[in-house]
Design a protein around this nucleic acid. Structure first.
Lengths: 372, 372
DNA sequence: TTGTATGCGTTATCAT
DNA sequence: ATGATAACGCATACAA
């Protein structure tokens, strides 16, 4: 029955897992118990018969494109209500060619930042009639291809790419074929179809903040080596240092991979080297958590002995002790803005993407350096 | 065009937001650039023509139900590959009546525990050919109805309810109509279609742990008042107290709503009352974070002065300072088990649900009470 | 304003 | 083993 799904090369759809988030609007008070009981789905034909009109008319009131007689309309609506009609998505999709659904490719579902963006996306599509379908690219461009293929197979009306590693060429082909917007990634030549924050600037601000507080030996725990955001954040860090006339010390540059575990490892190796440092700029908040824990284990206090800055401002960061100073990425806003824009795009309306900024959240993990 | 979506009472589908997570399996090396470029989707008719067979035959190799001549099969497959065929989900769904898709109703996407369950669900469906569609019931049973209605409209082949407030009666109607499994909630009479952990036991263990460490004035910050889990956890707390011969002090029972903010409020009001306490059992980890922060602000140390226990064991809890002692809910395992079981159920195979347990994770937020 | 007829891409039921 | 052909439920161009 579904053997082909596993077997055939042309069915990447196969092992998918669809993940849907549904927003609702107020619905009439249809008797509850009835909802789950009826077993024979009613179709427009049923409605037509009941309302003594043709199927086309029913379809018309359903889509209210062409004008329908007020009275006829009422009759049809009543028939629908009493029969508990619910349109068949498949039939509708087949006939119309549109799915009222858009594909959202994320890089890592379950990670704080992408979750924020997704929340925003969900909100942005709320009430528009479009349903986003989120899929995970798993941070690999090959996977991303497959995933997008699948989405196209599902006949999505538009595409929202959250980050991703697709090349310019491919992106260009893509947007040629279907309305597409990229979120959280700067794509040259896509200025109008792209929402992102300036990671360089965010990292610069964070580092500058540390420098302003008297820190000079500032370590950095980087994100994944080839990851765009990680690269940009490192760039911001370097810039701030250079601007302050502080030479970048390679020994203060640690590798990491955005996990708390990598924060632990990094601090450990830093301590092992015996390098002295008074502050650490982390690739993201999770890394900062790991760093903070290790420091504490070694009897090093935050922020008294070492200051800490994260990136993302995930929900927990305002509540950990001490509350983490971090660069807030307006993930939700980005997602929401992108979603609205995409809707306009799909409907051929003009749209504009806002310029969002990564804002430093000053909390309590940073202190002025003690003059010893 | 989509006006009806907003207007008609019978289109709860309307403002939905679909959220899909797609798993993939290795796919043949189709030339990349081609993937995004072809603009006219090929159909089985195209394949049939190319392979000089009938549509029926093409459909057969697609579904490999009945036997197809080996050679014919090869020809068809080749035609498919060269034409880059991709099945149309709508047509397939319309014709077959099945969607290879299952609805997953969660209570709160974005909250740590439900996220864990979703991860498990995603994993559980991986490779099965079924795609889960997650929808949010927003912790309201009315919303839950609408949401399920929508799912039924989408022709899901099965239903996975993560928590939820549906009544027995409704649940029974539901499972009468479609394969259903409930996760994270105990439903009388559903023993075989239900995966859950014993919240009473988990809370009991946590409280007992505190008592064993010498604590007697143990406060509790409860979850949402009418929330099943919150009620059960309170019950476990009460039981442990009773068993130890400690009288439950109403003044040590605080209200909360599972958020860090409510943890802050609770501790504040507790402190205000001047009640003395040496330990706090929190409804979940987020609440514990809030509690911990407030305690620290007041100069009260954890665990030296006050011990803290959470519930859930969300990802951050092992890395905060001090690492939080908490009751781990095997959310991922629950989700995965439920998913596998549902698949068997939908395919008419026998299945069995495992008995999972909430395990206390002893970390560092609890200490023996100082004998003063 | 309303009805008729056709097509959307598959699956499924017959035949052959 | 394979080929016609009729659904599937809805949208839509075309008539009326």
């Amino acid at each position: 029955m579904r053997g082909y799904l596993r077997e055939s090369f042309l069915q990447p759809v196969a092992t998918e897992v669809l993940f849907a988030y549904i927003y609702l609007q107020p619905v009439s008070t249809v008797p509850r118990r009835v909802l789950f009981m009826k077993s024979t789905p009613t179709t427009i034909s049923d409605i037509a018969e009941r309302a003594k009109v043709s199927k086309s008319t029913v379809s018309r009131v359903l889509n209210d494109k062409s004008v329908v007689n007020k009275q006829t309309r009422r009759t049809v609506l009543e028939a629908m209500e009493s029969l508990g009609y619910q349109a068949n998505v498949f039939a509708r999709g087949l006939a119309s060619g549109r799915s009222m659904t858009v594909g959202v490719v994320t890089q890592k579902i379950g990670s704080p930042f992408f979750d924020m963006m997704m929340q925003g996306v969900i909100q942005g599509f709320s009430g528009t009639g479009y349903s986003p379908i989120f899929v995970d690219g798993q941070m690999e461009d090959v996977t991303e291809y497959k995933v997008i293929q699948t989405l196209l197979g599902r006949k999505v009306d538009g595409l929202l790419l959250l980050g991703g590693d697709l090349s310019h060429l491919d992106l260009n082909d893509l947007r040629n074929r279907i309305p597409t917007i990229v979120v959280g990634k700067e794509v040259p030549g896509w200025d109008d179809q792209c929402v992102y924050v300036d990671n360089v600037r965010g990292a610069y601000d964070a580092t500058k903040h540390l420098i302003d507080f008297g820190h000079r030996d500032i370590a950095i725990i980087r994100g994944i080596l080839h990851h765009q955001d990680a690269i940009r954040r490192f760039e911001g860090y370097s810039q701030a240092l250079a601007e302050a006339g502080i030479e970048l010390d390679p020994e203060l540059v640690l590798e990491g991979n955005f996990t708390a575990q990598s924060g632990i490892l990094a601090i450990n190796s830093l301590l092992m080297r015996g390098k002295s440092f008074s502050a650490v700029f982390c690739a993201n908040d999770m890394v900062a958590y790991g760093a903070r824990l290790t420091l504490q284990r070694k009897g090093i206090r935050v922020p008294e002995d070492v200051s800490l800055v994260g990136f993302d401002d995930q929900a927990e960061s305002a509540f950990v002790t001490p509350p983490l100073t971090t660069v807030r990425q307006p993930g939700a806003e980005m997602g929401a803005a992108a979603a609205s824009a995409l809707v306009s795009m799909m409907e051929g309306k003009p749209f504009e993407l806002p310029v969002l900024r990564a804002e430093l959240q000053r909390r309590e993990s940073v202190s002025k350096i003690r003059m010893s």
